[in-house]
């Protein structure tokens, strides 16, 4: 395959950034999208040009590191697929492909296609956990978790934290991420003790980080490589509502 790539190049966070066109030949249709970028980078290095920086690691769709907007869509045209699992057979010979980083104020561009997603970590640090000190746990089977709850928790926990939801949202809202993270723990009996505190803290950290608001477009769900459902946002709203009322009535935010 021969392709024309319009790639966003940006030297660093302060740089303005611009699209630059490249052409790349001899791409195998069996190779993955990132392997196609490897090929381009090898060609650039051979010419002594700086290769395109992009984030990637496991290349099997689970680490959540890869983060490209391809032809306007986070993670490209295939549903339920990360960029690393996107294969060139999804494109035609001669195609022009536009490749950009995630764009959202809380995800500043580091270089070219690489963005800084540490705001996600900050959200988890503020409350996305169950406090269970090492060594303090009881026998695992003493906590019964109904299968349906375990399945729901697992559906939510499948989130890989890639940030596609934010990238696809017109408002750069992180609600789907936060909702998935909160729902995973809030659904389980182990997570009940900290449930209210968790949602209040996570939502307020999310707001402080500068993410936009959820206006229920549903684009996040459409691009999510793990198909996290919008229902978890409804659950987050519900849990947040209850927690806020309780906090208001008790005069405490803990």
């Amino acid at each position: 395959m021969k392709l024309t790539l319009k790639i966003w190049r940006q030297a660093n966070t302060e740089d303005q950034g611009r699209f630059i066109s490249y052409s790349v030949d001899d791409v195998s249709s069996d190779s993955s999208f990132l392997e196609m970028l490897d090929l381009l980078n090898e060609q650039l290095v051979a010419k002594g040009e700086e290769p395109v920086a992009f984030d990637h690691d496991c290349r099997e769709g689970i680490c959540g590191m890869c983060s490209l907007r391809i032809n306007g869509l986070a993670h490209g045209p295939e549903r339920a697929t990360t960029v690393c699992q996107l294969h060139m057979r999804s494109f035609q010979d001669g195609d022009t492909i536009t490749i950009e980083p995630w764009r959202a104020a809380p995800f500043p561009v580091v270089k070219d296609l690489v963005v800084d997603r540490s705001s996600f970590d900050a959200i988890i640090q503020s409350g996305g956990f169950i406090t269970a000190r090492t060594g303090s746990a009881q026998d695992a089977n003493s906590i019964l978790v109904p299968k349906c709850d375990a399945d729901t928790a697992m559906d939510a926990a499948a989130c890989i934290g890639c940030g596609a939801c934010v990238a696809a949202c017109k408002n750069a809202s992180a609600m789907l991420f936060v909702a998935a993270k909160a729902a995973h723990l809030n659904t389980l009996p182990q997570g009940q003790a900290e449930k209210d505190r968790r949602v209040l803290k996570m939502v307020s950290t999310m707001d402080e980080a500068g993410f936009g608001n959820c206006t229920n477009y549903g684009e996040c769900e459409a691009v999510c490589p793990k198909e996290i459902s919008l229902d978890f946002i409804a659950k987050l709203n519900r849990d947040y509502g209850k927690a806020s009322i309780k906090a208001f009535l008790s005069g405490s935010d803990e």
């Binding site: 956990f129 746990a137 695992a140 019964l144 389980l188 997570g191």
Partner: peptide
């Protein structure tokens, strides 16, 4: 054996049987 206890307490969504056991 301690690992499973620890992870379950942290909320790792291990597969369960209908009765709620692991």
């Amino acid at each position: 054996v301690n690992i499973i206890d620890q992870c379950a307490a942290q909320g790792v969504p291990f597969a369960r049987e209908y009765g709620g056991l692991l």
